[in-house]
Design a protein around this nucleic acid. Structure first.
Lengths: 462, 462
DNA sequence: TCATTTGTCCTTATACATTTA
DNA sequence: CTAAATGTATAAGGACAAATG
């Protein structure tokens, strides 16, 4: 029997005892699900403590725990030990490209677009390929990892960024996100733990979530992820891997210098982690910088997407990997993709081999430089490790604010920017920032107007 | 204390009691994992009953159950109530396209190639698109689910096969395998169970394995999967989904008739399964056949790959899905692919809209018919439910044989064929068959020679 | 700093369902 | 067809750990 009468202390959620049938935990879970989905329990509602509900329903605490677990897995609620269980606010953090964003009533500085006014050059290359007589060979169903000729172009492009690997250790995937999916599925298991920067790429966070891979955030100083912190985390948890974007970490814009790269590599070797090096911004890094992969030749997977550097629409990325991963990645590609379209790979190979690719990145770097100089007129960049060609900037928020509050407020000012909470693998009370995309306005003038609005917004917050 | 001394009745696996530390179940699981991965417990070994182990280790039965569950989710073991727990046979069956198969010294009747001599028509379409002036729009980073115009073409193509869905319930993926990956990741969890035909598509089996999704094989009669067996399996296990290839099941070549489709649909509704309908061979099915999805409008995901029907090299598939899955699939596509290349989708849309697609499938059907007629000269097809246009045939083996033995033997005869064990989700003592691809020889003559060799091989086995 | 609150994890007990002999 | 073997599902009790004030 219940110990107390609960009539006088109202609980936020009172399941109907009469509706409980065996199995109890499922019965409870579906009552809870029903009440959440029908709006009887609005987002962020604090549910009664598990013990209180158990007492009220006169069943064991563990049964409530189990019922709650069912709803938590469905994403309906979340729980924090010591604090309680809450109805999930149903906002997701993944950064979606708007489905139809023809007419925006704000200045876009949220999403990072790839400065794709250089697409005209890609179109020319497509046209020139369409005239070749070997087109039919590109439609072949063979070569799941990529045609040899395309892998040679991939190698050439990697070498340009000081990454060298034999063609047998190179594969072509259907874009960078597809490569990350492949790597997480082929080399990791559900429940594995991967170290990431405290603030990191949101789509990697979401991908890890969907695959039930746990991310362990590691704090950074002005040079990027701190080796001591990584060491400590490896000691405390059993980590299997690490994800890094060393050329220009998204969102902090930090380029890791060579010493820091070596120090991180030492920890990777010490704990035998698998390195996932996402070098999407390699074309913005100083010439001759060696990738972290270079220092861990037995433990790396290096991902070189061309979405930001050459063309986002072609959906091609190159990956290179240590010998030990050859079999698993080959097997993974076959299971996940079968293969990447030869036509698309051909277009990119042609861009690389004709030198057009070099021209594109030169132009993009120039545009990025101009936009960064404009940014510097309004805001200071104090950390010399931040990449001066970065497509986005990272600005501390002096007055803390919730994600929704801040971004909504910004929209009323007519600008779209992202709050740092979107980039946290584990939400906590970390310092707050905003990420400002410099490459998404249609021209420099619009960016100027956006930055003026941003400056005004930040002043008014004080 | 243990009730008996186990010294005299040797168990197949005896974990070292001294190595057990808390938590017990994990300790046991990792000992077991270690022994399997290091070969001390070879594939198919029957482990001791859970009760016996519990008794031996002097702990509770449930703790062993839990330890075994950990290894089962990792795919190391599998359990059958009443029979016991067994080490998973780790043979990989995925059918790889040869990396470099220029010079074959055998006749290819293993892999199912798509009769792609129609690729010339695809090439022409690529050339015509390259001349259009809207090419740059195809390189857009927007529309992760596919551009509206492409989705309309997808809808049109689906309608041709009696599948109708609003464009908001349609998406474009980077090929059929990519679609299946997406669906398994977005709509299922590791450990979930999906019903499949006893003999089913090997790459689906491998994909499920890599994602730790369990497949439950369901027996078939001459009309395909038996509804009663599916019902029984749903009763016994808690199933979340079902995978079907109803137009021409690979490898059995069975086309499910309308009555059977309805009966299966009833069970899907009864147990609220998620239907994954892989309609890659829809173009070989009789006109007007309604997909199974039609009968479960609230629970389906319909996958229409164009790899076999139009072009395997373009890596495009269309999917349609029930309203309840819109959010999860949108989210999944974003996390796994970001998007599929608009250029490739445009080529396929153009094929569909200009009627070239219709011409291609007409030609392919005609070629398939000729090759099937040739097959019928040598072998009998007794089951009227087998698709007369099938790209492959399914032949009973009167004298049982191991997979390796048979396939090796065939190669010495100069032919490449697949043994039925490759198509089993759970290896057991099922009846044995071989699958003969009719569409992979370069011409009908070569197929004729291959079939003669096959006939001779089978006679010599008797 | 420490006690309280609160969710999580591990282990056990028992009833049940399927397979096999 | 029945009984035994064997894995599965549900629920409970207790120890533990993180957050809070």
């Amino acid at each position: 029997m219940p110990v107390n009468s609960f009539e006088q202390y109202p609980m936020t959620w009172k399941p109907d005892k009469d509706q409980l049938v065996s199995p109890l935990y499922r019965s409870i879970a579906s009552l809870l699900e029903y009440d959440i989905l029908n709006g009887y329990l609005p987002p962020n509602t604090k549910l009664p403590p598990q013990r209180e509900l158990a007492d009220y329903l006169d069943i064991n605490l563990s049964t409530i725990t189990r019922a709650f677990k069912v709803c938590e897995v469905k994403g309906l609620i979340y729980a924090v030990t010591g604090r309680g269980t809450f109805v999930t606010p149903n906002a997701r953090n993944a950064i979606f490209m708007a489905e139809s964003s023809e007419e925006l009533n704000y200045i876009e500085m949220g999403i990072v677009k790839p400065l794709d006014c250089t697409n005209g050059l890609v179109v020319e290359t497509i046209k020139s390929i369409a005239n070749k007589n070997y087109l039919e060979q590109l439609l072949d169903y063979r070569h799941p990892l990529g045609m040899p000729y395309h892998k040679m172009a991939a190698r050439k492009w990697m070498q340009r960024f000081s990454m060298d690997a034999p063609v047998d250790n190179i594969a072509i995937t259907s874009g960078g996100q597809n490569a990350l999916t492949l790597i997480l599925i082929a080399l990791f298991h559900p429940g594995d733990k991967i170290a990431v920067d405290m603030y990191t790429y949101p789509n990697f966070i979401e991908l890890a979530n969907i695959l039930n891979i746990q991310l362990i955030p590691i704090a950074a100083d002005e040079l990027g992820m701190m080796p001591e912190r990584l060491d400590a985390a490896c000691n405390a948890n059993q980590l299997q891997g690490i994800y890094l974007v060393p050329s220009c970490n998204n969102p902090t814009a930090i380029t890791m210098n060579m010493n820091r790269r070596k120090d991180i590599a030492d920890i990777i070797k010490k704990y035998e982690l698998i390195l996932i090096e996402d070098d999407i911004y390699s074309f913005l890094a100083p010439e001759g910088y060696l990738p972290v992969s270079h220092f861990v030749p037995d433990r790396f997977v290096y991902v070189l997407s061309i979405a930001k550097s050459l063309s986002s629409g072609m959906r091609v990325a190159f990956i290179a990997y240590a010998n030990v991963f050859v079999e698993k990645i080959t097997y993974g590609i076959f299971n996940i993709n079968i293969k990447t379209s030869g036509l698309n790979a051909e277009v990119i190979a042609e861009l690389i081999n004709t030198g057009v690719a070099d021209r594109i990145i030169r132009e993009k770097k120039e545009m990025a430089k101009v936009r960064n100089e404009l940014y510097n007129k309004y805001f200071e960049v104090n950390n010399p490790s931040e990449n001066p060609f970065s497509f986005f900037r990272w600005l501390p928020l002096s007055h803390p604010c919730t994600l929704k509050e801040f971004e909504q407020n910004a929209l009323t000012y007519g600008i779209h920017v992202y709050h740092s909470d979107r980039f946290l693998a584990k939400k906590d009370e970390s310092a707050q920032f905003i990420r400002i995309s410099l490459t998404s306005t249609k021209d420099v003038d619009e960016l100027d107007r956006g930055l003026v609005l941003l400056k005004r917004l930040l002043l008014n917050l004080k």
